[in-house]
């Protein structure tokens, strides 16, 4: 039980430190106009590993990104740019 509590505290510490570093690294100011590749890199890793653009055909990417727009509540603009990038990079 004691070991569990200690491990719990360590995880809590990692959690706290990571939040602080994340806040420190984010650029400040109004959301700049971002490219599809950057949006893919930032968003498609949030829940699972970023998918390889070559994994699917253009038509398949349209369906998969629509699925993700619904499931991951991506914004409409993000989705549009990401799908254009994936179709170009596959």
């Amino acid at each position: 039980m004691k070991a569990l509590k200690i491990s719990g505290s360590i995880l809590g510490l990692i959690f706290g430190i990571s939040l602080l570093t994340a806040a420190g690294c984010a650029t400040k100011g109004v959301q700049p106009e971002k490219l599809g590749a950057q949006l893919w890199g930032e968003n498609c890793v949030r829940c699972h590993n970023a998918p390889n653009p070559q994994a699917f055909s253009d038509a398949q990417w349209e369906t998969a990104t629509m699925h993700m727009r619904v499931r991951a509540s991506l914004t409409a603009d993000e989705t549009e740019k990401i799908v254009a990038f994936l179709k170009m990079a596959n």
Partner: peptide
């Protein structure tokens, strides 16, 4: 309600 406060979407 999900809030992503940072503009690089890294935190929710």
């Amino acid at each position: 309600l999900g809030i992503l406060p940072l503009n690089n979407s890294s935190v929710e």
